[in-house]
């Protein structure tokens, strides 16, 4: 999980253009200024590229926070 956190933090800092972001499980889009419906989709694409898997739409539509995303990444990368 530590590795996922580190890699997610790097992606988020790059996509949301904020060097202070840290990917914590409680973090939500509301907490990050540039995390909008538009940048979110770029973020999803970058996560897929970084972790080398494809999301199903059902995976992403029920995400409530970064913790949920971490669980999906963990599950997908373990397959």
């Amino acid at each position: 999980m530590e590795d996922i956190t580190k890699r997610l933090t790097a992606i988020m800092r790059n996509v949301f253009e904020n060097e202070n972001i840290v990917a914590t499980p409680e973090l939500t889009a509301k907490d990050v200024e540039k995390w909008t419906s538009m940048t979110n989709i770029i973020f999803i694409g970058e996560v897929e590229k970084e972790f080398a898997f494809k999301f199903h739409f059902r995976d992403v539509m029920n995400l409530k926070n970064v913790g949920d995303l971490m669980k999906v990444i963990e599950k997908k990368t373990a397959q």
Binding site: S37, I42, G45, E48, F57, M61
Partner: peptide, 16 residues
């Protein structure tokens, strides 16, 4: 919006 932008996410800004 959500399913469409998701399906075309590889197009980046153009998908949006």
């Amino acid at each position: 919006y959500n399913p469409l932008s998701f399906n075309y996410r590889n197009w980046k800004q153009w998908g949006i």
